[in-house]
């Protein structure tokens, strides 16, 4: 598998406080990577740097061999899409309008939306099962529906990689499961590389090809999901003891807290 992103000794400081320190890892094409770790570990900061929302000041990030600085924002948007954790207040765009905005990197001013753009938008809405909400304003949607809309918009962008910041946090179990299966489809069927920050460790273990754990701005684990459970790794990362239970219908143990 080709290396899509290489993160090379990246650091980040803001007003004297170190957020990231010496972070290095690679993301290969087609991988499903989960990033786990306690709050404040720098996971969101790292995602934002990868999508060039925050500048890379220490170290470098290479996308297909070229440093991020070599990409203009529009060119990068064709390769990497980003689903933020929350979007705050927003004008009442319809779902269709919002997903259509995902086509921005493929459009230029005054050029009309093409059939290809429309196809990409409808395919994205189909894949995330939101076609029936197309005409609704995004603001009246529930949390789960809205998350699907954000994923659809990122999908419509046509990038080969999607970065997600806690896509299932704040959702009920059913919606979590829906989002997770949508992400799995996006990864397996559309062959889109996924890097997802999550606190759902069980799901990360069962669905990811690889897990990266961060703590205090550093990468403290980078390996196969099953390895994460061994060697007191989880205790070290989260400062709390986990218990394991063998589940008959899973090929790996399930984690739970005391």
């Amino acid at each position: 598998m080709e290396t899509a992103i290489e993160i090379d000794k990246v650091g980040y400081e803001i007003t004297g406080k170190t957020i990231l320190r010496d972070v290095s890892f690679t993301v290969r094409e087609g991988e499903y990577i989960s990033i786990v770790g306690p709050n404040g570990a720098g996971k969101t900061t790292l995602l934002k740097m990868m999508s060039k929302i925050l500048p890379v000041t220490i170290g470098d990030i290479y996308v297909y061999g070229s440093p991020l600085a070599a990409y203009c924002q529009k060119k990068l948007a064709k390769i990497i899409s980003y689903v933020p954790q929350g979007a705050g207040a927003m004008f009442p765009f319809s779902v269709l309008e919002f997903v259509m905005m995902g086509r921005y990197p493929h459009l230029s001013s005054f050029i009309k939306i093409s059939g290809e753009d429309r196809r990409a938008v409808y395919a994205a809405m189909e894949m995330t099962k939101i076609t029936q909400f197309a005409e609704n304003p995004i603001n009246i949607l529930s949390g789960g529906e809205r998350q699907k809309v954000f994923i659809a918009a990122a999908l419509a962008q046509g990038a080969s990689m999607m970065l997600l910041d806690e896509p299932t946090t704040f959702l009920d179990p059913k919606r979590q499961s829906e989002i997770n299966s949508i992400l799995k489809n996006i990864n397996k069927e559309s062959n889109i590389t996924i890097v997802s920050v999550t606190h759902d460790i069980n799901h990360a273990i069962s669905s990811s090809d690889r897990i990266i754990a961060m703590k205090d701005g550093c990468v403290v684990f980078n390996g196969a999901p099953t390895e994460l459970m061994g060697n007191n790794n989880l205790e070290r990362i989260f400062d709390i003891s986990f218990h394991f239970a063998i589940s008959p219908d899973r090929d790996h143990p399930v984690l739970f807290l005391e």
Partner: peptide, 23 residues
């Protein structure tokens, strides 16, 4: 009038706009 697509995305917040490719 030339900037309408950018204006739309800017109303969704700097982060989304940036990740969609808006400078």
């Amino acid at each position: 009038i030339y900037m309408t697509r950018e204006l739309n995305l800017i109303t969704t917040g700097d982060e989304i706009a940036t990740s969609r490719g808006v400078d």
